[in-house]
Each structure stands twice: as C-alpha cells, then as structure tokens.
C-alpha cells in the first residue's frame, strides 16, 4: 500500500481504539468525524490472516443502511470478505468490490501499533 501518495492529501493515521476492543473474526464500528462529514468505518479482526485488521465503509450500498460491521466475515476463494447482514452480498475487504453486483465500498488502510488500532483517514 502506497502510504506516501495518500498522505499527500492531508490524511494521517488516527488511533481508534485498543486491540482488546476488537472481536476475533468479527467486526466493530468506528465513527470518524471530519469537518464536513461523518464517516462510519467497519473494522474487522481476522488474526488468522496476513493483514490481521481490515477497515471498510460501514454503509451497505445495496441495502442502503449502516450495517456492514454486523456481517459475517470469511473467504470466497482467495478473497477475504464480509457478507452483508441484510441481503448477503459479499464485499472484498481488501478491494471493496462487491462480488455479486457492480458496487464498491470504500477501503481504509488499517494497522495495529503497540496494542492500538489505527486507521489512515
């Protein structure tokens, strides 16, 4: 992930919570309040995968509600995905692509530093 190119646009790593707030193989939601808008970010913790934490927009563009962090995570082939709790479409947690329809959700870089969870927003 090319952090420099993104950081050029006034973005920075924001500490959200402690790792103990994460739920193994499941999601929590963070509210990011920026100047003109609120953003809901779903953060998933999959300790058995390479990346460990994944962050995507919480808004389900198909069901049109803020629910994705309450979906079940898993895999489809090699993709790590969350399944929408509303209508069960799969969204890839690394690309944001919906596997069933031509829709995307936003993807945020996420990392664990010293027991803290940070998002690049």
């Amino acid at each position: 992930m090319s952090e420099q190119t993104i950081s050029a646009k006034n973005k920075h790593w924001l500490t959200i919570c402690q790792t103990s707030d994460l739920i193994k193989d499941s999601g929590i939601c963070a509210l990011i309040e920026q100047e003109f808008e609120e953003k809901q970010v779903a953060i998933f913790h999959l300790p058995n995968t390479e990346k460990q934490v994944y962050a995507v927009g919480n808004y389900d563009p198909i069901g049109q509600a803020n629910v994705l962090y309450r979906g079940i995570v898993g895999s489809v082939g090699d993709d790590i995905v969350v399944s929408s709790p509303l209508y069960k479409q799969h969204f890839c947690l690394t690309t944001g692509k919906c596997l069933q329809e031509d829709k995307y959700i936003e993807v945020f870089p996420a990392r664990i530093i010293d027991d803290y969870v940070q998002l690049f927003v």
Binding site: I23, K24, S26, A65, V67, R70, I72, P85, L86
Partner: peptide
C-alpha cells in the same frame, strides 16, 4: 459465548431481527 460469537448471523448476535434500516 466467545468462540461462537463471530459465527452467528446478526439476528443471533443482537438477539433481535434486523430490519431494512439496520
């Protein structure tokens, strides 16, 4: 219980039925 938590559909996780608006 912790090991089962992530397995449940949202309805079972929140012990309620999710409606269209979440």
């Amino acid at each position: 219980k912790k090991p089962h938590l992530s397995l449940q559909d949202t309805n079972d996780t929140y012990l309620g039925n999710m409606q269209k608006d979440g």
